[in-house]
Design a binder for these strands. Structure first.
Length: 568
RNA sequence: GACCCCGUAGCCUAGUGGAUAGGGCGACUGCCUUCUAAGCAGUAGGUCGUGCGUUCGAAUCGCACCGGGGUCGCCA
């Protein structure tokens, strides 16, 4: 039983409320006012007494060996855990591996990234990928079996535009001949098309014809499509590898399109009266009045993205035996996912309630929206390289004698942490305006700051070892310095931060908890000597605290998909 | 026109009913002979978009309005 529960039990004896209700009401008061606080307003309502008086009366009845004192302050009862006791329980939990309290069961699939094969990945994809990777890690951390899935949007008119530009204007150039990363080469074709179509609107018609040829399986067209898709995908896979994105399953829209995977569901819906055929043959899902209806098949009987998605989703639940499915997709699709899930609900799929849209805000530039068409995007490879170059300079400024390989390794780790943390530290639903000069820093609330704090802590442990200072994980009750207590309290909040992130589909709770831990640790580091502790016992306690800090930061960074480096 | 999201100091942001609204950037002041200064300590900076309401209590809930973004039957 933890202290919160112990206090709740004490209070339950004095009031009408049970332990569970009281546990929910107990809060952590502002600094210095105690370790836990119980607000008496609810009691005041119940027995119609002044909450200040109630606090006074009840606080006198409460005593226990683990409590140093109980204090009534205004309408609050503040509890002070005996010095050291809080540290003892928090550190013990950490060393016993009890970092996270929630436990989930089952197998889930999470779809993220979802690139189009007509252009390379950009900063928007990186936000998507960061969220997808981190949320996957988070789900694993709470006990779920996770299948990471990518859906490749490899067919459609936009793909044909790049193909057409290549056919007409590339003069046989290749990524090799141009010395260009293959997905960037394809992306250039897409931009080229959009330039040329301004001069010659007829190109639009040609692109449509190309799409028709593709749908008719025209040999030459398919050959070109395969060639360019391979270029696009090969290039993207390099970016994924660099960024750290991993996938267990790859779904290709084209395959489901050719299999007509959604058509069976359309039939089913029509039979069940969930879908209706319009006069011109188009099929609409009837979702009103709750949400707007959705057209799921064209008048000519060809498939839309939604048609495919119906098929893909059904396939996932059938083939993989998953209990839940998650989609990491930007908030412009909020309505679409409500419609998709509602369709499955109306079709009678009991797992419809286990479908979740992990929605997030778009990444914009100070100059406005990113537009691949016009080439006004922050390219994923470019931004990683740029940030890495800055990291290289910073490392070389500090160390002149490191070998190149180590420098490279650290620079990449630091660069990726700066980018990923920047993309995860705020609530997922909030928009991001990316300013290249100001956004990515290594100081303040950043990934590198966390890495740095971790490296400092590790450095103390390393030095202790070098100096032959063996320590035991004990004497936690000696951690009574303010800086130590504040750090312990912050470490103790990790579990609830994880819970919050899981519930809210956003990593920012974890991110902010880690910042809090790092801040308290650095403050402690500055003020309290560890290796020069006065006694053997104090050395045990402080080194244990430092070690516990590294354990929690490492776990948090692991969830955020950020590499914790030992030296920085 | 309808619906969804957002609005917290010059800028970015946490906090979604409770105790003096937490951080960071930028500005200014200090601190490297002591475990990594990518750090620490401190100062200045706030009509929590506006108004009305609910409540003992509102940044947080409701209504109206203003500002920004997004979406709305055959675009991915």
């Amino acid at each position: 039983m933890n202290y919160k529960e112990k206090i709740a039990l004490l209070l339950a004896k004095e009031t009408k409320f049970d332990k569970e209700q009281i546990t929910l009401l107990l809060e952590v008061p502002p600094q210095g006012l105690g370790d836990f606080a119980f607000p008496c307003f609810i009691l005041a309502k119940e027995i119609k007494e002044n909450p200040v008086e109630i606090a006074k009366i009840i606080s006198k009845e409460l005593t226990s060996d683990f409590l140093e004192k109980v204090e009534a302050k205004g309408p609050y009862i503040n509890f002070f855990i005996s010095k050291g006791n809080l540290s003892s329980s928090t550190l013990s939990n950490i060393f016993e591996g009890k970092l996270i309290n929630i436990k989930e069961k089952g197998k889930v699939m999470i779809e993220y990234s979802g690139p189009n094969t007509n252009k390379p990945l950009h900063l928007g994809h990186l936000r998507n990928n960061s969220l997808g990777m981190a949320y996957s890690n988070l789900m694993e951390a709470v006990g779920l079996k996770v299948i990471r899935a990518n859906i490749i949007n490899d067919r459609g008119i936009h793909i044909c535009k790049s193909m057409l530009a290549y056919q007409k204007f590339a003069n046989g150039k290749t990524p090799e001949s141009e010395g260009k990363k293959s997905d960037h080469f394809v992306g250039d074709m897409y931009v080229l098309y959009n330039e040329k179509v301004k001069e010659n609107p007829l190109l639009e018609k040609e692109a449509k014809e190309l799409l028709k040829k593709w749908e008719e399986n025209d040999k030459e067209t398919i050959k070109l499509w395969e060639k360019m898709n391979k270029w696009a995908l090969d290039g993207m896979k390099k970016t994924y590898k660099l960024f750290g994105s991993e996938f267990d399953e790859w779904f290709f829209e084209s395959e489901f399109f050719k299999k007509k995977a959604g058509h069976k569901l359309v039939e089913e819906g029509l039979t069940k009266g969930v879908f209706q055929k319009e006069d011109n043959g188009a099929v609409a899902a009837i979702l009103e009045p709750e949400i707007p209806n959705k057209i799921i098949m064209r008048g000519d009987g060809t498939a839309l993205y939604a048609t495919n998605d119906l098929g893909v989703t059904q396939y996932r639940f059938d083939k993989f035996g998953i209990d839940r499915c998650f989609w990491v997709v930007a908030n412009e699709q909020d309505l679409y996912f409500k419609q998709l899930f509602s369709m499955f609900d109306k079709l009678g799929r009991k797992w419809a309630k286990d479908c979740h849209h992990i929605s997030y805000g778009m990444v914009n530039l100070t100059s406005g929206k990113m537009k691949s068409r016009e080439g006004t995007v922050v390219d994923a490879d470019d931004i990683i390289t740029q940030v890495k170059d800055i990291a290289l300079v910073e490392i070389k400024k500090r160390y002149s004698d490191l070998d190149e390989k180590e420098i490279e390794k650290r620079a990449l780790a630091i660069a990726l942490s700066a980018i990923k943390f920047y993309l995860l530290k705020n609530a997922a639903k909030k928009e991001i305006t990316f300013d290249p000069v100001e956004s990515l820093s290594f100081e303040g609330e950043t990934g590198p700051y966390l890495q740095y704090s971790f490296a400092r802590a590790k450095s103390i442990l390393r030095k202790a070892n070098e100096e032959g200072k063996k320590y035991k994980r004990e004497n936690f009750d000696l951690l009574t310095h303010d800086k130590e207590k504040e750090l312990v309290i912050e470490l103790g909040k990790f579990s609830s931060a994880v819970e919050k992130s899981f519930e809210q589909f956003s990593l920012h709770s974890i991110a902010h908890n880690l910042l809090g831990i790092a801040e308290k640790f650095n403050s402690f580091y500055h003020e309290v000597p560890v290796l020069k502790s006065d006694s053997k016992e104090l050395l045990n306690a402080r080194l244990s605290l430092v070690e516990a800090t590294t354990i929690v930061i490492a776990k948090g960074l692991e969830i955020l998909d950020i590499v914790a480096i030992e030296k920085m």
